[in-house]
Design a protein around this nucleic acid. Structure first.
Lengths: 245, 245
DNA sequence: CGGGTATTTGATATAGGTCAAGCATAGTGG
DNA sequence: CCACTATGCTTGACCTATATCAAATACCCG
């Protein structure tokens, strides 16, 4: 059930049996979310965090004119809003992009962890810092990368994050997002994403059919995206998979 | 000496006398940095974090072609790299934008805090989550705001962050950044920043002369930037309900 | 099989980039 | 005290990556 979450943690650090038990006993209700359902509304005080078990969620912020920026994608094993534990309410919404299943973790239980398990606390702190590292990489994409490089970097990131939790092979994975979703991640329009995708396909870097992404040439994809996976912090002592080329 | 740091924390939560003492006793060496000096090099393992006492620092990432994205600005009172405590090394550089003074805080001392002061630990965790909230707001700027709105939002953010630590009045503050620095924050060119600044000046929203920014019409500036300060989490003022005792 | 959603394509527009030059300013050293 | 250099600011002319608008498919799912 929380194997993907444990896999994500163990890709970066050791989690003891005691800590694993503490995590398991912190779980509350299991909930399902429909696609497009709001998981965490902005500005509403929270008393729990949401551990994503299955499906894709995202965080986004928007402007008065309706333009929306997705600030991070979440995959199975991620906490979508662990930061609500210290922030109490979020400055953004979290929604399900696909049908999802999640475990709700009461903040009271997280607080008990901070009082009894300093190492696990630091690991969860690390986990929110990893979210921030992803935000920074996206800032780099949004501010400086071309459209082509943004998509290449995004796909490269997702392949690794999904592989860690057993949802991607070395070269392919299900990516049930629309081109509009991708556009909202990378600050582009759906039309331009469509054209840029075609361009990546024509160059035989990726294929994207039936909501499945296949990486045809990972070395070139990384190069096209100026992608350096070190911001994902996978060199810890865990079970990090081989990172390829 | 660390009054600005305490002011920043106390703008969000209560800090007890004991906790204040713990912070003070965690301080190590005081260091000065010249403008442009590297404060924390990317990818190098750190054994301390850097509490900025005076001056402006920034975090940035760059691409092969030399294009650089500043991902966050740091002002007096901020930890520039508190996240290095859990991450061990950073995915980005930290440099001084102006001459700076900083207190180095050994990670060993931070670890002691996590073992003895759970509430203060949560407060520092909060603090890195606040950095992430700023990253998200910048993602929104970089992905969706016009150049004019980006500058308006940036100036609005800085006025508040600086006022909290006593370095800004309601309407003005020293902003010792070049137009190129500002451009690298907001994903623009220095030329376009220059033109956009003129535009803001012509509309009597701000003045920017001699490295001092004056806000002439804050309501209009906030409106121009689609600025909503709630992402800065300033409503806990002193009472700390969100972080518990 | 029908209706909403997603993708694709074409034509055109524009915000912001690039290149280039001229000024202003401030520190430096003779 | 004044060239001298370096750095930053300003402005103009032109360019391009990406947006916008619009319309035609394609694709699901009920």
């Amino acid at each position: 059930m929380i194997e993907r979450h444990l896999a994500k943690l163990r890709a970066r650090a050791t989690v003891s049996a005691e800590e694993e038990a503490a995590i398991r006993s912190s779980l509350g209700e299991i909930r399902e979310f429909a696609a497009d359902e709001v998981v965490v509304p902005a500005l509403k005080v929270q008393d729990h965090s949401t551990m994503l078990l299955d499906g894709f969620m995202c965080r986004f912020k928007d402007l008065r004119n309706g333009k929306r920026q997705i600030t991070e994608l979440h995959v199975a094993g991620d906490f979508a809003d662990l930061h609500s534990f210290t922030l109490k309410y979020l400055d953004h919404d979290v929604i399900a992009l696909t049908p999802c299943r999640a475990a709700l973790v009461p903040h009271a239980n997280l607080r008990r962890i901070t009082e009894q398990f300093p190492h696990l606390t630091r690991l969860y702190w690390f986990s929110t810092n990893l979210d921030a590292a992803i935000h920074r990489e996206w800032e780099l994409s949004l501010g400086q990368r071309t459209a082509r490089a943004r998509l290449a970097a995004l796909f490269s990131e997702l392949q690794i994050r999904l592989q860690i939790v057993g949802l991607a092979s070395d070269t392919s994975f299900d990516l049930p997002l629309t081109q509009t979703d991708i556009a909202e991640c990378m600050g582009l329009t759906n039309v331009h994403v469509n054209r840029t995708l075609r361009n990546l396909k024509e160059d035989r870097l990726v294929e994207f059919e039936g909501r499945r992404l296949t990486i045809l040439n990972k070395a070139e994809l990384w190069r096209a995206g100026d992608f350096d996976p070190r911001y994902l912090y996978l060199d810890g002592n865990g079970t990090a998979p081989s990172l390829g080329p």
